[in-house]
Simulated assay, not measured.
Amino acid sequence: MLYRVEGIVIRSMDYGEGNKIITLCTENYGKVGVLVRGAKKVKSRHAALTQPFTYGQYVFFRNGNGLGTLNAGEIFESYHSLRENIEQAAYASYACELVDRGLHDEEIGAFWFHQLKACLDSLLESKDIHVVIHIFEMKILQASGYGPELEQCISCGRKSDEFKVSPRLGGVLCQSCKHHDPASYTVSPRTLKLLQLFAKIDLRRLGNIDVKDETKAELKKVMRDFMDMQMGLHLKSRNFIDQLDKYDI
């Protein structure tokens, strides 16, 4: 059967001497694997379609739910400049790997496709890279069914101005319930408000948010803890980001 889909390349790997297999995050068909014959050859007309982050239209043949074979394609946005900037490339790779590893095929629909595209667009527009990626992490948590409860105590449902964050329990605890997780910790009111905003915002409507360095540090800790406790993914792209941060590249 012939398929014509809009997709974003979230993974690209060599296959044999001259071919590549790409994984697409598509608007209507979830994640799709496509074999691109001859993509590694110098004069291949399809080579550009296999580059990471590329957004375009892909036409391929596929029998059943197996691997498709590319017939034709058209690039809508190459995101070429993201691949040329080491920091932007690292975070874009992280976003794509989150989709690839964090979501099952049936969980990816039009909304998540558009959130990934909005994430790449925001990185391309040089919006705050940390804010963008933390919002995207929040979207992945929500898509996976692990979206944290940040508006009321996850134990008793009480609203409060003095919450403690409990990544292990997946939300916030009021002062009366903090004993349920001795490892829970306090964050600044600004950080908590931003986390609540991240849970509600659509990346396609993200403007410019000015965040102080100390708030960014808290946001990174909280989101890292939520991702580790709730999803437990070990991602190569995140390890690379940690190396960038370590050496301040």
Rank of each mutant, 00 (worst) to 15 (best):
K220H: 13
D225Q: 08
A217S: 09
R204Y: 02
V211C: 09
A199L: 12
E218G: 01
N208G: 14
Y185A: 02
I209G: 07
G207L: 07
K216P: 07
R190L: 14
K221M: 06
M223C: 01
G207R: 08
K178H: 06
D213Q: 12
R224G: 06
K212D: 15
S184T: 02
L192P: 06
A183Y: 02
Y185E: 02
I209T: 07
S188I: 01
T215L: 13
T191P: 00
K220T: 09
A183L: 05
P189F: 04
R205S: 05
N208Y: 14
S188Y: 00
K178P: 03
D181Q: 05
K178A: 08
T186Y: 12
D225S: 05
D213H: 15
L206F: 06
F198A: 10
L194R: 14
I201K: 03
K216H: 15
M227C: 10
S176F: 13
F226C: 08
H179L: 03
D225E: 11
K216N: 11
K216S: 10
D181V: 00
E218K: 00
R190I: 14
K212A: 15
H179S: 04
K220P: 11
D228V: 06
T191H: 03
T191R: 02
K200V: 08
T186S: 12
I209E: 12
P189W: 04
K221F: 03
T215I: 15
L197A: 14
K212L: 13
L192Y: 05
S176V: 00
K212W: 03
I201D: 04
K220N: 13
Y185V: 03
H179N: 14
G207E: 07
D210A: 09
L194M: 07
R190W: 13
V222W: 00
P189E: 12
K193R: 15
D210K: 13
G207D: 02
I201G: 13
L192A: 09
R204T: 03
E214F: 14
I209Q: 03
E218L: 00
L203V: 00
R224T: 12
K212C: 12
A199K: 09
C177Q: 09
F226I: 00
A183I: 04
K200Q: 15
H180E: 15
C177P: 05
G207A: 01
